[in-house]
Protein backbone atom coordinates (compact mmCIF):
# COMPACT_ATOMS: atom_id res chain seq x y z
CA UNK A 1 0.00 0.00 0.00
CA UNK A 2 1.41 3.38 -0.89
CA UNK A 3 1.43 6.38 1.41
CA UNK A 4 -1.07 8.05 -0.83
CA UNK A 5 -3.49 5.22 -0.33
CA UNK A 6 -3.06 5.53 3.40
CA UNK A 7 -4.06 9.16 3.46
CA UNK A 8 -6.55 9.09 0.67
CA UNK A 9 -8.86 6.48 2.13
CA UNK A 10 -12.46 7.52 1.65
CA UNK A 11 -15.32 6.20 3.71
CA UNK A 12 -17.23 3.57 1.77
CA UNK A 13 -20.40 3.42 3.86
CA UNK A 14 -21.97 6.57 2.35
CA UNK A 15 -21.50 5.02 -1.09
CA UNK A 16 -23.24 1.87 0.12
CA UNK A 17 -26.13 3.90 1.49
CA UNK A 18 -26.57 5.93 -1.70
CA UNK A 19 -26.41 2.88 -3.93
CA UNK A 20 -28.96 1.07 -1.81
CA UNK A 21 -31.36 4.01 -1.76
CA UNK A 22 -31.19 4.27 -5.50
CA UNK A 23 -31.65 0.61 -6.32
CA UNK A 24 -34.41 0.10 -3.76
CA UNK A 25 -36.39 3.12 -4.94
CA UNK A 26 -36.22 1.56 -8.37
CA UNK A 27 -37.09 -1.96 -7.23
CA UNK A 28 -39.98 -0.89 -5.03
CA UNK A 29 -41.60 0.91 -7.93
CA UNK A 30 -40.35 -1.47 -10.58
CA UNK A 31 -42.18 -3.98 -12.71
CA UNK A 32 -42.09 -6.87 -10.26
CA UNK A 33 -42.86 -4.51 -7.44
CA UNK A 34 -46.22 -3.02 -6.93
CA UNK A 35 -49.59 -3.52 -8.50
CA UNK A 36 -50.64 -0.22 -7.00
CA UNK A 37 -47.97 1.74 -8.83
CA UNK A 38 -48.78 0.02 -12.11
CA UNK A 39 -52.49 0.69 -11.67
CA UNK A 40 -51.92 4.34 -10.79
CA UNK A 41 -49.62 4.70 -13.75
CA UNK A 42 -52.21 3.38 -16.18
CA UNK A 43 -55.02 5.54 -14.77
CA UNK A 44 -52.91 8.69 -14.63
CA UNK A 45 -51.83 8.08 -18.22
CA UNK A 46 -55.45 7.67 -19.27
CA UNK A 47 -56.49 10.95 -17.64
CA UNK A 48 -53.61 12.85 -19.23
CA UNK A 49 -54.26 11.28 -22.60
CA UNK A 50 -57.70 12.90 -22.62
CA UNK A 51 -56.12 16.33 -22.81
CA UNK A 52 -52.59 16.00 -24.13
CA UNK A 53 -50.57 13.37 -25.83
CA UNK A 54 -47.65 12.30 -23.74
CA UNK A 55 -45.21 9.52 -24.33
CA UNK A 56 -45.47 6.64 -21.92
CA UNK A 57 -41.85 6.80 -20.86
CA UNK A 58 -42.17 10.49 -20.03
CA UNK A 59 -44.34 9.60 -17.06
CA UNK A 60 -42.51 8.44 -13.97
CA UNK A 61 -44.20 7.22 -10.85
CA UNK A 62 -42.35 6.49 -7.66
CA UNK A 63 -43.57 5.25 -4.34
CA UNK A 64 -41.22 6.05 -1.50
CA UNK A 65 -41.71 4.45 1.85
CA UNK A 66 -41.40 6.46 5.04
CA UNK A 67 -41.93 5.61 8.67
CA UNK A 68 -45.51 6.80 9.08
CA UNK A 69 -46.46 7.42 5.50
CA UNK A 70 -45.23 6.90 2.00
CA UNK A 71 -44.83 9.50 -0.69
CA UNK A 72 -46.10 9.06 -4.19
CA UNK A 73 -44.08 11.07 -6.68
CA UNK A 74 -45.46 11.65 -10.17
CA UNK A 75 -43.22 13.26 -12.80
CA UNK A 76 -44.88 14.07 -16.09
CA UNK A 77 -42.87 15.58 -18.86
CA UNK A 78 -45.27 17.49 -21.09
CA UNK A 79 -44.30 18.01 -24.73
CA UNK A 80 -44.05 21.72 -25.56
CA UNK A 81 -45.87 21.35 -28.85
CA UNK A 82 -48.65 19.03 -27.85
CA UNK A 83 -50.04 21.21 -25.10
CA UNK A 84 -53.52 22.59 -25.74
CA UNK A 85 -54.88 26.10 -25.17
CA UNK A 86 -53.01 27.38 -22.11
CA UNK A 87 -49.48 28.20 -23.22
CA UNK A 88 -47.09 25.34 -22.91
CA UNK A 89 -45.20 25.13 -19.68
CA UNK A 90 -41.84 23.56 -19.14
CA UNK A 91 -41.94 19.98 -17.86
CA UNK A 92 -44.35 19.99 -14.95
CA UNK A 93 -43.65 18.41 -11.63
CA UNK A 94 -46.69 17.20 -9.81
CA UNK A 95 -45.84 16.03 -6.34
CA UNK A 96 -48.68 14.10 -4.79
CA UNK A 97 -48.98 12.45 -1.46
CA UNK A 98 -50.63 9.21 -0.68
CA UNK A 99 -50.76 7.64 2.74
CA UNK A 100 -50.61 4.18 1.36
CA UNK A 101 -48.53 1.43 2.80
CA UNK A 102 -45.35 0.14 1.19
CA UNK A 103 -45.44 -1.10 -2.35
CA UNK A 104 -46.18 -4.73 -1.78
CA UNK A 105 -44.65 -7.31 -4.03
Amino acid sequence: MSLRNLFNKRASAPTARDRLQLILAHERAGAGGSDLVMLLREEILAVIAKHVTVERDKVQIRLERGKDMSTLGVDIELPVTAAPKPPAKPPAKVPAKASSKRAAA
Binding site: A16, L20, I23, L24, E27, R28, R102, A104, A105
Partner: peptide
Protein backbone atom coordinates in the same frame (compact mmCIF):
# COMPACT_ATOMS: atom_id res chain seq x y z
CA UNK B 1 -25.01 -3.84 7.79
CA UNK B 2 -24.06 -4.81 4.27
CA UNK B 3 -25.62 -3.93 0.89
CA UNK B 4 -26.82 -7.35 -0.25
CA UNK B 5 -28.38 -8.17 3.09
CA UNK B 6 -30.22 -4.83 3.27
CA UNK B 7 -31.53 -5.23 -0.25
CA UNK B 8 -32.81 -8.74 0.44
CA UNK B 9 -34.41 -7.61 3.69
CA UNK B 10 -36.28 -4.95 1.76
CA UNK B 11 -37.63 -7.65 -0.51
CA UNK B 12 -38.68 -9.80 2.45
CA UNK B 13 -40.49 -6.84 4.04
CA UNK B 14 -42.48 -6.57 0.81
CA UNK B 15 -43.43 -10.25 1.10
CA UNK B 16 -44.39 -9.87 4.77
CA UNK B 17 -46.77 -7.10 3.72
CA UNK B 18 -48.36 -9.14 0.96
CA UNK B 19 -47.99 -12.92 1.33
Amino acid sequence: PEVSSVRDSDRIIGLLDSK
